[in-house]
Amino acid sequence: MKIMIADDHPIFRSGVRNLLQTTEDLIVVGEAASGDEVLRLVEQCQPDLILMDIRMPGLNGIEATRLVKEKYPHIHVLILTMFRDDQSVFTAMRVGAKGYVLKDADEIELLQSVRIVGNGGAVFSSDIAARMMHFFSEPRTLNPSEHPALSELSKREMEILERIAEGHTNAQIGARLNISAKTVANYVSMILNKLQVEDRNEASRILQDFREG
């Protein structure tokens, strides 16, 4: 199985590479320090699986995953990160990642996760799986008719909320919509005010629940 490692910390990449090189069935074919570098190298390396960090310079791991899966749907992505929050997990799954493992996983767990996702399965760190079970077991309290504030958002505000839910920063949203990051920040403030929430994660959760009915 051909693996690409995408992480902006060279020492961490080295440790993962050394671990994978102790096996007979896994081979490292490329390394990237940013999402942009992933996109430049993926066609050349043709990995079966990408070990993808989330926070990297420039293009983040979530957006890189989305773009990789759009062009190369056969390439599997396993998120390897320190982020434990629900929003990061669900956003990663929505853009096509099939696994979510924390960087404090031991060597056995990491190797097992690589093989499971590389062979088409899905895997999550134990505490991430527990959080997901808790999330989906919570009573549903929101549906479109119960949250009329969503209907008050303008077309532009709704578009920005959708980008927020995908994990984009203000700068990335601005670049995509050809507006300044400051203008995006102003829109975000209006969105939070209309939805009566305190942060971007809560706003994203409302949109997700709205879509799932």
Score class of each variant (00 low, 15 high):
52 M>H: 02
52 M>W: 03
52 M>R: 06
53 D>N: 13
54 I>C: 09
54 I>K: 14
55 R>S: 14
55 R>Y: 08
56 M>L: 06
59 L>M: 15
59 L>R: 15
61 G>K: 10
63 E>C: 00
64 A>Q: 05
65 T>V: 05
65 T>C: 09
66 R>C: 00
67 L>Y: 05
68 V>Y: 07
72 Y>D: 03
72 Y>R: 10
72 Y>S: 09
73 P>F: 10
74 H>P: 00
74 H>M: 07
78 L>D: 08
78 L>R: 15
79 I>Y: 03
80 L>F: 15
82 M>H: 05
83 F>I: 13
83 F>G: 00
88 S>F: 05
88 S>K: 02
90 F>S: 01
90 F>V: 01
91 T>L: 06
91 T>Q: 13
91 T>S: 15
91 T>N: 12
92 A>F: 08
92 A>S: 15
95 V>K: 10
95 V>N: 09
95 V>M: 06
96 G>K: 06
96 G>F: 03
98 K>V: 01
98 K>E: 15
99 G>T: 10
99 G>N: 08
100 Y>P: 04
100 Y>M: 07
101 V>D: 06
105 A>T: 14
105 A>D: 03
106 D>E: 06
106 D>L: 11
107 E>V: 02
109 E>D: 10
112 Q>C: 07
114 V>T: 01
114 V>P: 03
115 R>Q: 08
116 I>F: 00
117 V>L: 02
118 G>F: 08
119 N>E: 13
119 N>C: 06
120 G>L: 09
124 F>R: 12
124 F>N: 10
125 S>I: 04
128 I>T: 05
129 A>V: 01
129 A>P: 00
130 A>G: 12
131 R>L: 02
131 R>S: 05
131 R>G: 02
132 M>F: 01
132 M>V: 03
132 M>N: 00
136 F>V: 05
138 E>C: 00
140 R>V: 11
141 T>W: 06
144 P>N: 06
145 S>D: 13
146 E>G: 12
146 E>F: 10
147 H>C: 15
147 H>R: 15
148 P>F: 12
149 A>Q: 15
149 A>L: 04
